[in-house]
Design a binder for these strands. Structure first.
Lengths: 192, 192, 192, 192
DNA sequence: CATGAATGAGAGTTCATTCAT
DNA sequence: CATGAATGAACTCTCATTCAT
């Protein structure tokens, strides 16, 4: 078990290193050797845990995406009314993007790049279902505009990614007041 | 002049090839040799027009960004009332993203990646001023929420990029009806 | 230790190949790929042992220079009288140039070319100190002309390089008789 | 004739540029394009005057060598006694190396490098005949040691090249006093 | 499990040379 | 004569991946 523990730690170190390096340099300027060095393992060791570089990035993507959605839906359950539920989820997502900056930045880069293969992208999408269900409920209750989930997502969730990137680039500071403004804009864009 | 003409055509072919290949494969999987081949020139010829790969991508970015904003503000002038002006600009932007898909996709990738250097990013930003001025006017007239331009952009303009990417991936079709919905959501999110 | 042994052998093979190829073709006509081929390694392997081509040549230079001076001063110590000491050193140097032709030719090319960087040149110079000390002693004893070491070197040591190059080009044969003549000329030029 | 004049000037500019650039960067780091730029002509123009890069360097070598020997033997004729004649020639050579530094450095680099082809080397050697004749006369008169001209050259002439290189590297200053010392050493090494 | 050493393939870039004008 | 534009070939160097240990 101590052995297993060490393995898990090594894998985690690799995931962390990948996120960090890809964030700062992009996929193309992140050699496997650097990832290995940062994770304090041999390059060869990476291949004990992942098939190849593409597989590494795919798996990291899926795991980070899973962590992201787990975080997002932590305090939500289907008994909560639509408006309140949306606010809960939205604010958890905002929270994640502000606190887990590295992970969130990584997702943003993956989502706008041909860096991740289609299968992994689909896989990452699965976990978003509760939000889609919430929206469906909202539409039926006449609270939310009868729009495609893609539109709802584009206007109520995705802007947070843009704001996070701007914050990360240092041109914009997303403090508590702004956050409330952002939430209002999100809600205004999809509420009926 | 025939010589000059041929030079311009060659340069254009290089720009087009760069956009196309970076869109499909990403920066890292787009070797100079492929760009050259697609533009029907020798690899060495690229270096007559651009300093190096980074310079090539930077310049393509700036030029596409300039073309994009020129398109966006084509029918707009400062005499037009705020609400109408915003609609004009917004719809031109949407138009661009639907018609000049390659260019628009290229911009989206550049804007979410450490692929472009900071100076070029700033350069590309300059041309957006008319939109910022419009918003300022709207705020003073009490028509638009008194928010940071970053927030206004995040909610009213940036979602189009997301939708375009989704459309490009084939998971969502942004037809005329949806477009009107999208415009309404954009306007709802920033109007007072 | 078998591994270490193999590494050392590989490095040595690279050094030997560099000397040989630079001698025959000059620095500029010696691609890394040829060095690799001659040393029976992959081009990439060179970069495990040296930072780049310049570093490779610098390091080879320093090492050969060190071997040269070690050889030169092998039988000499500071107890030996000046005239005798000079003869010992001079003949060892001549010996080296006649026996270790490849190494000696390599040094000659490096010393007359902007091929080696200044730092490495300085590094290579250090080991010559015993000869400078001998000359100093000779001057104090009134045996050797009170000249700058550069002059002494130019007239008593450097001519050997010229003669070696001529011999290598096949236009001149430096046999035992000639060697004695050469020694006499060297000594005549610096003795008081 | 004005046309011819311009051609000659262009050729001269090319020769000068070659000398200068090869001196500072070495043969391998001197692209034809740089030579062209420094001579204010198009790269293609070089090929109107020279067959290729090798031919360019060969011809420059031969011409500089010819200029060098012309300079060396300017004030000498066969009526002058041996000792006096040698001094005249030696001092003219020294003069050349101190005044025409660029040309002299270029020769030094060519003479110690596989940069010039054998034929051109032979060609350059021809002009040295008067010195060889002088030595022959000296030997017959019993004034000069009965040594191979290679040895005589190595000890009495070649050291000047070494000293010039050192001077050029800034580690040694060859002023008037040193020059007299150097001459004495040269003469001592070959006089009977 | 883990590794450091090794590498083939291919990246970006340069350059001697040519050719239409 | 002279050229700027163009290029194929070759350069240095990197990197994802493998393998003997």
């Amino acid at each position: 078990m101590a052995q297993l523990q060490k393995s898990i730690e090594k894998r985690n170190a690799l995931v962390k290193a990948t996120i960090h390096l890809v964030n700062n340099n992009g996929f193309h300027a992140t050699p496997m050797s650097k990832i290995a060095k940062m994770a304090n393992v041999s390059p060869a060791t990476i291949y004990l845990y992942f098939d190849n570089k593409q597989d590494l990035v795919n798996k990291v993507y899926i795991e980070v995406k899973a962590a992201f959605t787990a975080y997002a839906f932590k305090n939500y359950n289907t008994d909560i009314p639509v408006a309140e539920g949306f606010e809960i989820i939205w604010k958890r997502i905002a929270d994640f993007k502000l606190k887990e900056v590295q992970e969130a930045m990584f997702l943003a880069q993956c989502d706008n790049t041909p860096m991740i293969d289609e299968a992994s992208r689909q896989e990452g999408l699965k976990h978003l279902q509760p939000l889609l269900d919430l929206w469906e409920r909202g539409k039926q209750e006449g609270i939310i505009k009868p729009l495609s989930p893609y539109l709802l997502y584009a206007y109520s969730i995705n802007p947070l990614s843009f704001l996070m990137v701007m914050q990360q680039r240092g041109v914009f500071q997303l403090n508590q007041d702004y956050l409330e403004d952002a939430y209002q804009a999100a809600w205004d864009s999809i509420k009926k």
